[in-house]
């Protein structure tokens, strides 16, 4: 456990810490119920501050924009629920995901790498190449949440039974205070099984092997943890629903 962060909680709640400082507090909060409780008290005041603002009518089109965008992300059966079919809005995503797959392809299939590079602007073609990387398996994209927006990872479940599942992350944020990322698989009953624990290597792309097959799990997720083993206790930084091959 790192030193308590009580001196910084007001700054954290008001959003007045710099990004690196905020990450340190977030990491501490993941393992410190006492600081979380104190933050919750402070947040009751901070969350009241918007009440000071003069209400303002948003453009009429905004609701439709939101609902339309959300409706494209409702899970669909089987293979259509991939990153490439649901999350291509931001430019970084395409670049990051393509770069992530490129690293894989370097290791797996140089011919596919050339195909990938020529297909960077063609999402559909990319999906086909991703299929090839997976050896007939499938993949899902985990999007970074909140402060981790901009990070992401693609979970590949290769079709060959002798190949382990793996995740290729892009733009992982550095961690502080001895914390580490943990990759989890979650079943329908809400049981979290740790598939990997790792620290970011500072590169734009990082591959991580999972020690657990994805069969019978319904979600994958990444959290920040203080311990290399044990149950999940840290904050969620990315996640995705998954539908393993054959289901």
């Amino acid at each position: 456990m790192t030193e308590h962060v009580t001196d910084d909680l007001e700054l954290y709640a008001l959003g007045a810490l710099g990004p690196g400082e905020a990450d340190g507090v977030t990491a501490h909060l993941a393992g410190c119920p006492a600081c979380r409780e104190e933050l919750a008290d402070i947040a009751t005041v901070v969350n009241a501050l918007p009440d000071m603002v003069a209400l303002r009518e948003p453009p009429a089109r905004l609701k439709e924009r939101i609902l339309s965008a959300a409706s494209t992300e409702i899970p669909r059966p089987a293979r259509r629920e991939t990153a490439w079919s649901v999350r291509p809005r931001r430019g970084w995503l395409g670049v990051g995901a393509l770069a992530a797959a490129a690293v894989l392809l370097l290791a797996l299939d140089l011919n596919s790498l050339r195909e990938l590079r020529t297909a960077e602007s063609e999402r559909a073609e990319y999906a086909l190449i991703a299929d090839k990387v997976s050896h007939g398996g499938t993949n899902w994209y985990m999007v970074g949440l909140d402060q981790w927006q901009g990070s992401g990872g693609t979970l590949f479940a290769p079709g060959k039974p002798d190949l382990s599942p793996f995740v290729v992350f892009h733009d992982l944020r550095p961690l502080t205070g001895g914390t580490m990322y943990a990759v989890w698989l979650v079943d329908a009953g809400g049981h979290w099984v740790r598939g990997a624990t790792f620290t970011p290597n500072g590169q734009a792309i990082q591959g991580v092997d999972l020690t657990v097959p994805v069969d019978n799990f319904t979600q994958c997720a990444v959290t920040i943890e203080m311990q290399a083993e044990g149950k999940r206790s840290g904050p969620l930084v990315m996640q995705s629903r998954i539908a393993p091959p054959g289901q």
């Binding site: 918007p50 603002v53 003069a54 209400l55 009518e57 948003p58 609701k63 939101i66 609902l67």
Partner: peptide, 15 residues
């Protein structure tokens, strides 16, 4: 999602 927008959309936009 629509109901949460109706409830807090104005405040969110104002903020």
């Amino acid at each position: 999602l629509a109901a949460l927008y109706d409830r807090y959309g104005r405040l969110a936009y104002a903020l």
